[in-house]
Amino acid sequence: MCRLFLMSLVLCCVSCMSGIPIIGIDEEGVKNIKITKSKYSKKMGEVLADVHDAAIVPANRLALEGHLDHWELRWFNVGVGIEGKVGIIGMVSLAARPRIRLYFRRKYNRES
C-alpha cells in the first residue's frame, strides 16, 4: 500500500516536471494547463498529419489539372490552431482548428 502511494507520488512528480504548458483564455482570463510531452507530440503529430493530408490532395489536384487558365497555384500554408477543454483533472480534449491559405499568381508574371 505504501509502495503504491510512493509510486503514485513519483508519477505525479515526473508528470509535473515534464509537462507542456498550454495557455488558453476564458471569461475569467488566462488559464494554463499542462499536458505530458508524449501526449502533446502524439496528439499534435496526428492532428498535423490529418490536416496536412486533407489539404495536400486537393491542392495538388488543383495545381496538376490547372482549372484556372491565367492563375497558377505557387504555394500554400496549412495552419493548425488548437483548442482545449479543461476538466477538473486536467485537459480533457485537444481539438484542431485547421486553416488553409492558397497563393495564386498570374501566369504571365513567370515570363516577365
Binding site: 507542456i20 504548458p21 498550454i22 495557455i23 488558453g24 483564455i25 494554463n32 502533446y40 499534435m44 498535423l48 495552419g79 493548425v80 490552431g81 488548437i82 483548442e83 482545449g84 485537444l94 482548428r97 486553416r99
Partner: peptide, 11 residues
C-alpha cells in the same frame, strides 16, 4: 507555452 486560442495558429 503553446497558445490554445481561437484564431491563433500553433503550427
Amino acid at each position: 507555452g503553446v497558445l490554445a486560442l481561437k484564431g491563433t495558429v500553433a503550427a
